[in-house]
Design a binder for these strands. Sequence first.
DNA 1: TACGAATCTTCCATTGGATGGAAGTGCAAG
DNA 2: CTTGCACTTCCATCCAATGGAAGATTCGTA
Lengths: 253, 253
Amino acid sequence: MTPTRVDSGAPTALLERAIRLLGCFGPAGNALTLTELATLTRLPLSSCHRITATLVEGGFLTRGDDRRYRVGNALWTIAQHAPLSEKLRESALPALARLYEESGENITLAVLDQGQALYVERLMGERSIPTVSRAGAHLPLHTTGVGKVLLAYQPDEVIEHYLAAPLSTPTPDSIADPDRLRRDLRLVRDRGYSITRQEMTVGSGSIAVPILQDGTCVAAVGVIVHLARLDVNRLVATLNRAASTIVAELDRA
Amino acid sequence: MTPTRVDSGAPTALLERAIRLLGCFGPAGNALTLTELATLTRLPLSSCHRITATLVEGGFLTRGDDRRYRVGNALWTIAQHAPLSEKLRESALPALARLYEESGENITLAVLDQGQALYVERLMGERSIPTVSRAGAHLPLHTTGVGKVLLAYQPDEVIEHYLAAPLSTPTPDSIADPDRLRRDLRLVRDRGYSITRQEMTVGSGSIAVPILQDGTCVAAVGVIVHLARLDVNRLVATLNRAASTIVAELDRA
DNA sequence: TACGAATCTTCCATTGGATGGAAGTGCAAG
DNA sequence: CTTGCACTTCCATCCAATGGAAGATTCGTA
């Protein structure tokens, strides 16, 4: 009757638990006690204890003198070999650094991940303005410069699927209306860059351009500036130059 | 009889296997097939398959169209919250970028990890010379600028323990004699910086200084240059300025 | 296009490792 | 000293992991 296919969905419960546990380490709390972990994961304390012990032994976690668990160096080291680091970040860093030198502004590099903008890198100096983004952070697609680019270059069904869900409004200027957003995204694709004005943070805006590899948008580079300094033409030109450098570097690898 | 203490060394076999499996992803091969993984881990193919399936499901691995496994974004994201990234790298990046701007040379930031120098960051442009280091890479302590600094500021027993093991010699100029190295390390501590001349790579040398937080050396910053350009005084001054900026930033966090 | 080899996926009976409640330990505050 | 909280250890039960083997795919080669 049923087409079966029993396995595949590996019922490796213990591993799933461990992954869930590691997932607790995030922006909100990177140093957790055993009880905190047990609460967050809804695992029995003793099971939690057993799992963390093994993770510590393997270097995936460390435990400080404060008895709190933190992400360990072994995990970090492995992550450095993720395509995200090894290919994208590595290829883009020099160009991003130059971009930062030239503009002195907040530079961000992001990819699409889990229906959000995943910030792969962020360069930010004293001169630039504070932002919410952080390397490793996930932000909405429709309220960030890089996010709008990433979304705009997706196939229509992905865009529609995104628009179908309710859209958050971090600021009064955030675009939450599907129709307005649809128009905005079309504009982004037509012009080849996105503009954001106080849609994520009041007082600041952003420009972003896609990094296109044979037609598909693999990432987006953006710059976040104080609204008053939002010189679109100049920034787009600078960003485009950086983007093409990055593309060249990516192809070389 | 025995003081017991049975538990603690958590016998979570499955997790240990999974950790071992993830550890296969390194400089030598960041895209592995199932059979390769099974061989490397010496695990039965089916067990390997089950584990990878769960890891993929959890986003710790991804599988490309080439059927090769790669480190996934979820793992990478978690790693961004490691103290190594969130505290050290984050605090140091601006200063490192400036250092790179000023010198145009290869800049490295490393910590002590598992008796080796773990490269936390590396900035390298077109102008600078090629090196073996890479973010996430482990290199010997006695053949690298940052390594010698990290080792020099360790307690004597750690140094002696390091010297007790046989020392590798990547180049003819590598210092493998314990006595010579001991003298060199003392010199490093006295002067506050290390010099390396063709001890890791023929033709290039390096200077490194410690990042000291209330007496202990938490990391080291270094610059790698062509031997001919090894202007010690100037580089040491520049590095020290960067180091104090980083310390200030670390204390602020 | 067809074949065989290599690689990958699924299955399932067995069993040993994971499970979690409970008891034990240690520490800090009242 | 007592109480409470956070953590660690223990152990009998049982179910999830195990891995060999068979089936399915993919790939290279003729």
